[in-house]
């Protein structure tokens, strides 16, 4: 922007978005932060509690395990789809247009399905007598047929796989769009230099996709941290507390246990973790290649 066009102008551009951002994001967030310093049941007078809610949350084994589960989900919701989507996007870009389109549509489809439908469908697929186990038994793998979402060891990874399946399509779509932005001349140059497939991928494709990868990681990592709907529909946090995530705790404390201050404190901690994660991702993405 040229200097001298008025300092107010940029702010004017931001104003329309800001008008919505303030009442629907900033004010509720400030309200939540305020609430987190009170002991409140939603009905009687709130009592100021200082940092008690934070102390309780950070000291609680259940809250800590909820955040640990969210970190595990990051591997499944974020890292796994990004790693799988890179070759898939590269492959689909090389296919003829109809085949590539069909492949991408198929992979993107889960994104278009509501999470509740995804949860109910996978709940059925992963049930003890569901199609997955029926298939395993048909292969003679009877011992591998277990109650996936009801198993203390496998419930969280199973949920993670469902999330990965959902988010893979988004990553492929983002990377495919990114690939279109890489000039063909770079590939030609690489070919002239005698670079093989792997070398071309590392030297041309990957650096060209840095932006889309950062966007994909931001979206998927945030969706792992704030996971609620999928967990609520498939396991409700069980078995035991094996799939309890921060969202489930916030919901229960706010709407079932009437501990709104405690719920707000966990929500604020979650928000801080989300900010930190997105900051780290963007810092790495912005780094100039050495």
């Amino acid at each position: 922007m040229r200097r001298g066009s008025g300092r107010a102008l940029p702010y004017l551009y931001v104003l329309p978005a800001f008008l919505f951002f303030v009442p629907f994001v900033l004010v509720p967030f400030a309200h939540t932060v305020g609430l987190s310093f009170y002991d409140w049941d939603g009905l009687t007078r709130a009592a100021f509690a200082g940092f008690d809610n934070y102390r309780e949350a950070l000291g609680s084994a259940l809250v800590r395990s909820a955040f640990t589960h969210a970190l595990v989900l990051i591997l499944f919701f974020g890292v796994l789809p990004v790693v799988l989507a890179l070759p898939l996007a590269a492959m689909s870009a090389r296919e003829s247009a109809p085949a590539g389109n069909a492949l991408r549509t198929l992979i993107f489809l889960p994104q278009a399905i509501s999470t509740v439908v995804v949860g109910v469908s996978w709940g059925w697929i992963l049930a003890l007598d569901g199609p997955l186990n029926t298939g395993l038994r048909a292969l003679g793998l009877d011992r591998a047929a277990i109650d996936w979402l009801g198993s203390f060891a496998w419930a969280l990874p199973s949920l993670g796989m469902v999330g990965a399946w959902t988010l893979l399509g988004l990553c492929v779509a983002l990377f495919f769009a990114g690939l279109q932005q890489i000039p063909e001349s770079l590939y030609d140059a690489a070919a002239v230099d005698g670079a093989g497939r792997w070398r071309t991928f590392r030297a041309v494709t990957l650096p060209g996709l840095k932006g889309p990868v950062a966007v994909a990681l931001t979206v998927t990592v945030v969706s792992a941290l704030r996971a609620f709907d999928l967990v609520f529909v498939t396991t409700r946090g069980g078995p035991g507390t094996e799939t309890v995530v921060p969202g489930i705790l916030i919901y229960r404390r706010a709407f079932e246990d009437a501990r709104l201050g405690s719920a707000a404190a966990i929500a604020v901690i979650l928000a801080v973790v989300v900010f930190a994660a997105t900051w780290v991702i963007n810092r790495i993405a912005d780094r100039k290649p050495s």
């Binding site: 203390f152 946090g237 069980g238 078995p239 035991g240 229960r252 404390r253 079932e256 246990d257």
Partner: peptide, 17 residues
């Protein structure tokens, strides 16, 4: 107590298993 969903039910499930 109102702790059913957070403590009582999940713990019961863990003990049964």
């Amino acid at each position: 107590a109102p702790n059913g969903a957070e403590v009582l039910y999940p713990t019961m499930q863990s003990m049964i298993a």
